[in-house]
């Protein structure tokens, strides 16, 4: 009884947390620094645009960490993740359509597109719980 696969899974989880942590460590200063630089120094438009796009770099690191984690999973867990992501995409697509209309027609406060991505992540985590129930 070695529980090799359980150890491997724990290792993968530890790895993804470490990857995510470092990605966030780069990401947060990039966002805050960029925002403050634009506010204080009022740089030319193209510099501002570059500063605004800069957080995409660390965001890709986050995506890479996620992909690396997914690849380390066995086929059932990968399936659970994919199904959950599909549900999340559908839910978020519908929710954004609904809220967009509320914004447009019923004067609801403007929500930035920045929130689509976090919404996908949250919906995905919640959907994961439900899809797991189906298989595990």
């Amino acid at each position: 009884m070695t529980h090799h696969s359980d150890t491997a899974e724990r290792h993968a989880v530890k790895q993804v947390f470490r990857d995510m942590f470092f990605a966030a460590l780069i990401y947060l200063p990039t966002v805050l620094g960029g925002a403050l630089a634009i506010k204080w120094f009022d740089p030319p438009q193209w510099v501002a645009a570059l500063l605004a796009i800069a957080p995409i770099g660390p965001a890709l690191l986050i995506l890479r960490a996620q992909l690396r984690y997914t690849r380390s999973l066995d086929e059932l867990h990968r399936r659970i993740h994919s199904e959950a992501m599909m549900i999340a995409a559908i839910v978020v697509a519908f929710a954004t359509l609904g809220y967009g209309l509320l914004e447009d027609l019923a004067d609801f406060p403007h929500i930035s597109l920045i929130w689509v991505f976090p919404a996908l992540c949250v919906a995905w985590s919640i959907a994961n719980l439900f899809v797991r129930q189906k298989y595990l």
């Binding site: 966002v31 960029g34 925002a35 634009i38 438009q45 501002a48 645009a49 500063l51 605004a52 796009i53 957080p55 995409i56 965001a59 978020v92 697509a93 519908f94 954004t96 359509l97 809220y99 967009g100 209309l101 914004e103 447009d104 403007h110 929500i111 930035s112 597109l113 920045i114 929130w115 689509v116 991505f117």
Partner: peptide, 23 residues
């Protein structure tokens, strides 16, 4: 995500009901 940042920090036009376009 990118457009959201451009909108908030780089003065890109804020589309009313931009969320409508996600779907």
């Amino acid at each position: 995500f990118t457009y959201g940042f451009l909108e908030s920090f780089a003065g890109f036009p804020s589309i009313d009901g931009a969320l409508l376009w996600v779907f």
